[in-house]
Design a protein around this nucleic acid. Structure first.
Lengths: 192, 192
DNA sequence: CCGATTCCATACGCAAGCGTATTGACAGCT
DNA sequence: AGCTGTCAATACGCTTGCGTATGGAATCGG
């Protein structure tokens, strides 16, 4: 009878479980809101468990970010590589900015912790990699050398700023139709 | 003899002094780094002084943000209003993004606190006002209705993202020449 | 020159959050 | 069944930062 409730909680936890939960917590309440005792409550244990799996809070944060860095960038690139036409790739990239909100929320949360010494290097790597990829696609689409890099930086900056303005500041959010129209406007403005 | 050192510190402080110091502290170490005891040390007093001028930390933050909201937006608009040609206005706005770093640093720091309940409304107002202004200038430059608004949002997003990427993540910073060239690229891409 | 006001120092109490130490429960192996 | 390693609960100490209480010094109007 009572076992049905208990079954929902895993009997024992792994480091993976903590990392996943940490990413969820970050997406919801930011890096600053990541606290081991609150995470433990969320997982139905106490922090006695946590300190068996990780040496301290920063270690959990680093592990969670490593997991995010691995999966998140991979997913995006994989989806794009199915397209061959560079113009289509660019359009798909831009449209992806308005879908898949879970992933974007996590990224937006991380962007509000650029001053954190564990977070900053990860963000630098991710941004550099993505901008580099974007620049290559712009180059494939016919833009010359440095222009492709500048355009990539512009497009990526617009994406980052969009996350800040739209996801974090709720009064600036766009309706669904407006969002689609906006993305099409951006595509028209930034794709050669 | 020893008076020379003491003279550097003001004899007594006003609420204004605290607000200014708070803004400096925010520019350096973010909203989260704003602590009354550390601010007091910086001003050469103790927190006994602080709690005479303000009821609590949030009150100081609110006052400092109000001061920032007043002065910062005002300065920018005032400088732009001396130009009459809308294209020139846009170019000047974009170029201003790479100057006057003090003001930008403060804004970048505030952008990393979009989840703070005192900060968020201020940022929403400022962003909405500036985007509205931008949209009007784009309209003056010949863009039609909703397109001017979307272009304003795109330009402002690019600005916000630029602040995040270049000011907060130091490995992504551009050299002075690159920065100027980038701004010119953005001008070419976003001004009709 | 003397109250009243303004500004500040000192000394507390308190809550949040991290990390440690110790003990306990449960599983798998032999 | 008993041992061993794995995971977790409890209890504690420590630090940081906020806010309060109270007394003292400085300054200004009269």
């Amino acid at each position: 009878m009572d076992s049905s409730v208990v079954k929902l909680e895993r009997a024992r936890l792994s480091a993976d479980d903590w990392e996943k939960a940490a990413l969820e917590s970050i997406a919801e309440s930011g890096v600053g809101g990541l606290a081991v005792e609150s995470l433990a409550r969320r997982l139905g244990v106490t922090k006695g468990s946590f300190y068996w799996h990780f040496s301290n809070r920063d270690a959990l944060l680093a592990a969670a970010l490593a997991r995010w860095e691995r999966s998140d960038t991979h997913n995006l690139i994989a989806r794009i590589e199915t397209l061959t036409d560079p113009y289509e790739r660019l359009r798909e990239l831009f449209r992806a900015s308005s879908r898949d909100m879970r992933s974007h929320r996590t990224y937006a949360a991380l962007l509000t912790a650029t001053d954190h010494k564990v977070v900053a290097p990860v963000l630098e790597r991710v941004a550099a990699e993505r901008m580099g990829y974007l620049a290559r696609v712009f180059a494939q689409a016919g833009m010359k050398g440095i222009d492709a890099e500048y355009r990539a930086r512009l497009a990526y900056s617009a994406y980052v700023g969009f996350l800040q303005l739209t996801l974090q500041l709720k009064s600036l959010k766009l309706s669904n139709e407006d969002l689609e129209a906006y993305v099409e406007h951006v595509i028209g403005a930034l794709i050669p």
